[in-house]
Design a protein around this nucleic acid. Sequence first.
DNA 1: CAAAGATATGAACATTTATTCATAAATATT
DNA 2: AATATTTATGAATAAATGTTCATATCTTTG
Lengths: 187, 187
Amino acid sequence: MKLDKLNRIFNATLNLTGKVGIAGLKMSSIAKEASMATGTLYLYFKNKKELLNALYFKLQKESAPALISEINHLPIEIQLYKMWSLALKRLVENNLRIIFLEQFLISPYVSESSKEMDARFRNYLRDLLDKGKKENQIKDVDSNILISLIIGFLRNFSTYIFKDKEGELSEKSIDESFSLCWEAIKK
Amino acid sequence: MKLDKLNRIFNATLNLTGKVGIAGLKMSSIAKEASMATGTLYLYFKNKKELLNALYFKLQKESAPALISEINHLPIEIQLYKMWSLALKRLVENNLRIIFLEQFLISPYVSESSKEMDARFRNYLRDLLDKGKKENQIKDVDSNILISLIIGFLRNFSTYIFKDKEGELSEKSIDESFSLCWEAIKK
DNA sequence: CAAAGATATGAACATTTATTCATAAATATT
DNA sequence: AATATTTATGAATAAATGTTCATATCTTTG
């Protein structure tokens, strides 16, 4: 059935990007990884560029921070913890996505319409931190620095878990990393 | 003169990687960017793979660990500060390096020996942190978590400065970010 | 300043990889 | 169950890109 095959193509592409980067992606290996003939890819996508852009849009759509509206009445620390925990889980689970998204955006395959970046998460964090500063809970430090600490730490740690721990993310790791983060930014 | 041409090749490669990623790197465009004929590249490197690996080694050699031996007698906090300041300056100055290094390491062009060098900075940090823990200066938290905070923060912040501040890195930013980092990890 | 040596050029050639399409297999329709 | 329609295949072809090499241009040396 059609949807199934589309997903097989997308999964194959993601997996391969993790292994050989966008530089190493061949239509033939995508087909092989997805257990189908090379020609079949062209029934679903006009060409390689369209395939990659389609995957990009799919990933973007899925990464919408749906959680935000449900929790933004909670205290800052709790909000941050929930955000941290969820993001870390997602990132580890989907570390391949990060690799794909980062590489794709500076590859020769990006279409113009893809070029909008997700400043969304950053903006959510900024608002949260500003609120925290007003409530005297967060250090009075340039929000951009705080945001870099949070996002940078998050990404680097998730990549480490993904690579060196084979994706095994314990509650202890989540809590330990979060309290490190929280202590760094709290007043 | 020979060295000058080598540098032109390396610079061209870095610049192009920032624009089109490793996926978009063509020998012909490297040559064009470096204002020389395509064939000339092959006087300096046997092939594309060797060119990219040579650049990788050069970047590794130039990065923070070169400093290590000069400072490893100093107190932990000072060592960390010097490392932080240098790394941040270098990363901002040449954010392109990050892009190259990250993409290169999962491209089809990596040679086996390149893979080893990657762990070096991480190992230096690990030793430093272990020493700090013994001296009761650093939090007793899994070093991998601490390392992720440091490296992740560093990279993310440098990218932010590079992109949003057009590379303008003030002493104040360095100090502010470092003390945030230090406070996060110190006991 | 001529000849030898070193370095550089870029069009020609080789290789790799994207894309097409004649043919086959699967599925739906009567 | 025969026929039409849709979907899949992978070898053949086209396109893109890496690499070579005969020729040209600089540099050095006697």
